[in-house]
Amino acid sequence: MNENFYNLEYLPKMHRIGKVIGVLAVVASFMPALCLGLVYGLWPDWAALGTAALTAVSSFGVLWFVEPLSYYPVVGPMGTYMAFVSGNISNMRIPCASMAQVAAEVEPGTEKGSIVATIGMGVSIVINTLVLSFGVIAGQAILSALPAAVNTALSNYLLPALFGALIVQFGLKAKGHTLVMLAVGCFMYIAVGKSPLGINLFGWLSGASNYLPTLVCVFVSIGIMMVTSKKKAKA
């Protein structure tokens, strides 16, 4: 055990590596576009691209800032570097990092928790990439081999079932708080117009349904936790 190791050696080194890889990732993401241009002479119609990019940015640009801010308290600094290069954050990175912490019996937000979450997230990235690489080679053959009913069941019900199971795993320790947060979650998704009720209180905020509920839930949940723990500490 070395008390200062984590803050003085580990973190600064990981921040450096994370930043270098982040810059490389930006460069790597342009490779297919450059390949089309340099190998096949296919360049975009720049004026049309301006419009297309503007449309994409106005639907997703807010997410560039809101998602890292919302997920940071869950995944920490190292998780942030990894999660945003690899994507699939809420459906895979966060569940894997959190379940790794449960299995190793470490608390989130601690040094141990951060190390374990980094391992968990890294393993999930390797597995996800292997599954996709296998899938792209085997291609359509896999899915067409499955009966249609199995296919619908997997692609529609697996993630909801995962989220339901996860909220129980992490919510049982704070039942009252979790029930309140579930109510907040449902309320927010009704308010952004995702329910069959068709109410939309945020129609004026472009793309709000993509980020607003998660943002509100994360910070309301942190806020309530901090206030109640202060009250408990005083009592």
């Binding site: 959190s98 608390e107 989130p108 708080h177 979650g185 309320f187 998660t214 309530i224 936790m225 901090m226």
Partner: peptide
């Protein structure tokens, strides 16, 4: 920090569940 992270985890999963629950269908 543990309180912040634990709160955030419950917040994230509550949002994910909320998104599916308000559909009031098979999901």
């Amino acid at each position: 920090l543990t309180i912040i992270s634990s709160g955030a985890i419950i917040g994230v999963f509550a949002a994910m569940c909320g998104q599916k629950l308000v559909m009031v269908d098979k999901t």
